[in-house]
Design a protein around this nucleic acid. Structure first.
Lengths: 132, 132
DNA sequence: ACAAACCTTCCCAAAACAGGAAGCCTCATC
DNA sequence: GATGAGGCTTCCTGTTTTGGGAAGGTTTGT
């Protein structure tokens, strides 16, 4: 399929898809006309990256995550340790998002309208030390 | 407090803190020596941005989120609608992270070792259409 | 007073894109 | 089969969000 369709299906702009090819995240076939030809599996990779990027993973982290799928030549233990590390990170992110959620919903519920000099909820959130 | 301490407490490099000042995310006082002087509240803002950035919010989204705290002059309904929109987004992110978590943990549990041509879990994940 | 460790501004570079030009390819329509 | 719209290509430039490092002022400890 052409890049336009792949863009539609992955949720990524064509520009970005070409960029990802540039930096080696995927390597679609080329038709006789020189057009890129994306497989369903390419689209899966792209969607995966689209999600991960939106969740604060860097491109190089995405590369690592993708490598978990491309590990035919890789040691199983190696894959497992990377994946496990990512799982920890994901759990941390989930916890942080929940924290953020709490702050915002408290803000909506309690802090609307009056001129609050310093909302205690912010203090609470900010008080939690960052996961090292 | 000086930028070094603020950096330590917020988890952001001094460089980044100065950049955030440049683009108007915060405006610390200046001492007689020209040094920036950060308040506890400044550090809270910085920590907040640090978190939100790590969770995939753009700087301009962070600006919006911060504005929820700075809304003394803003209409309450306005704040509420922005905050509510952000809450929806956060919930989506949480759901996506959970999805990612599932994929990875399934990968660790089931897909280790053998040469799998196409893991069904990936298909499943990629099959879910993006939240419009 | 002198060095170490801060801080300042300024400039350049890199990562991750976005915009736009110039030129092919394709496809429907006349 | 020409023609025009739209999609694709590469290439170049620009923006955002930083990070590195130079050149120089400040503060602090000894």
């Amino acid at each position: 399929m052409n890049i336009g369709i792949a863009s539609e299906r992955s949720g990524l702009p064509a520009k970005t898809i070409r960029y990802y090819e540039d930096i080696g995240l995927l390597k679609p076939d080329r038709g006789d006309n020189g057009y890129r030809d994306y497989s369903t599996s390419d689209v899966h990779r792209l969607r995966f990256v689209q999600r991960a990027r939106g969740l604060g993973f860097t491109v190089s982290e995405c590369r690592q995550l993708l490598s978990l799928y491309d590990d035919t030549g890789r040691e199983s233990a190696d894959v497992k340790s990377i994946a496990t590390a990512k799982l920890v990170e994901i759990d941390r992110k989930i916890a942080e998002l929940k924290g953020l959620r709490d702050v915002l919903s408290h803000l909506v519920a309690h802090c609307h309208g009056d001129h609050r000099p310093d909302c205690p909820i912010i203090d609470e959130l900010a008080g939690a030390q960052p996961g090292s």
